[in-house]
Amino acid sequence: MTEHITTSAGDRVAFDHHLAADPTDDVVPVVFVAGAGPHRGSDQVTTETARLLADLGVPSVVHDRVGRGESPADAPIHLDRELAALAALIETAGGRAILCGHSSGCTIALAAAVGGLPVTALALWEAPLGQGAEPTRDWWARTAKQIAAGDREGALATYMEDMPAEFLEAAKAAPDYPATVAAVVSYGPDGESLVWAESQPLSVLLRDLDIPVVAAVGAETFPGMPEAADAIAAATDGRSIVVDGAWHSWEPRAMASVLADLARVTAEK
C-alpha cells in the first residue's frame, strides 16, 4: 500500500514500506535507492527483493524518487532534494538504515552516508564509476543543459550515450517511453552525485566512511563494473562480491540474502 511523506525540501514522496512479519531483534531496515529511470511501477526486481527481504525478517522501504512515478516534482531537481527524501525515509523506517544503491543510486547512497545521514551500512550494486573527472563533468554539463532547455528526449540520449546502444533502443520501443522521457527531470541527483564521486580519488572522498560496505556485481556484467566495485571496496575497507544477476540487474533471492546478512551484521554492532 502506497504511503507518502513530505521532505524538508517540501517534496511529497511516495513509498512502499515492506514490513517483516517476524522482524529480527534490533534489525536495521533497508532503504533502496534506484538509479536513473526506475520507479516502483516499473521496477519489479526491487519490489520482489523487498518482499523476500521481509520474509527473512528485515523491513525495507522502496520509494519513487523525487520527480518520478507517484512523487511528482517541478524541475530543477538537485541532489539535495533526493538526500532530503532519503533523510525522511530513513526517519520513517526507524531512524537508521542500510542503503542499497543500484547503478547511479550507488553514488547517491555514498553521498548520503558521507554527508552524515544515519546510514549503518551500504550495499552498492554496479556503480558506474571509472570514467574520470573531466569526462564526467562534460557529460553531465551537456545533459543538464538539455534538461534545462526542455529537450528531455535529447537529454535521455545524452545521459545514455556510454551505455550499450540497445539500452536506448529498448527504451524507445517500450510503451512507457513517453513517461521515461518525462522522468529525465529527475536525473539531476544521478548526474551530480556521479560528478562528485569522480571528482577525487575514492580513497579521498570516502576516507572518513566507517561503516560496512558491500560492492556487488552480477555474474554477467559489463566491462568496468568489477573494477569499480573493487575500487569502492578498497577505499572503504569493504567487500567486493559477485552475486547472481546479469547485465546490470540482480537476482532478487540472491540479493535479498546478501542484504539480510548485512542487516544482521549491522544489528550486532
Rank of each mutant, 00 (worst) to 15 (best):
V33N: 03
I77Q: 03
E3Q: 15
E166R: 07
M160R: 01
H39I: 01
Q200Y: 09
A254V: 01
F167A: 13
I232H: 01
A182L: 08
A263R: 00
A260M: 03
A123I: 07
F222V: 01
A14L: 04
A149E: 14
T6Y: 00
G132W: 13
L206W: 08
A36S: 04
H18P: 05
G132R: 11
L262M: 05
I211D: 02
W140T: 04
W125G: 01
L206K: 06
H18D: 13
R253P: 00
G95Y: 10
E169I: 05
L129I: 11
I147V: 15
G115R: 05
T136L: 10
E3C: 10
S203T: 15
L156P: 00
A234H: 04
E192V: 08
H102A: 12
L99K: 09
E192Q: 15
A9V: 08
W196P: 06
D261K: 07
D74G: 13
A149W: 10
K145A: 15
Q131D: 15
Y187M: 11
T24P: 05
A170S: 14
A85S: 15
S249C: 10
M1G: 07
G188Q: 08
D138Q: 15
V58A: 05
M1W: 05
G94A: 11
V31A: 09
M160V: 02
A171C: 04
Y159S: 02
E198T: 04
E70R: 12
G245M: 02
G115N: 08
D25Y: 04
I77C: 07
G238D: 02
G191F: 11
M163P: 02
A133F: 10
L19Q: 15
S199A: 03
D80Q: 13
D138T: 15
V61D: 10
S104P: 05
E126G: 00
V114F: 09
S186E: 00
T49D: 06
Q131F: 14
A88R: 06
E91C: 09
L124Q: 00
S104I: 08
W139M: 11
T7R: 00
G57P: 07
R137D: 12
Q131G: 13
G150E: 11
S103C: 06
G218Y: 09
P201Q: 05
A228P: 03
R65V: 04
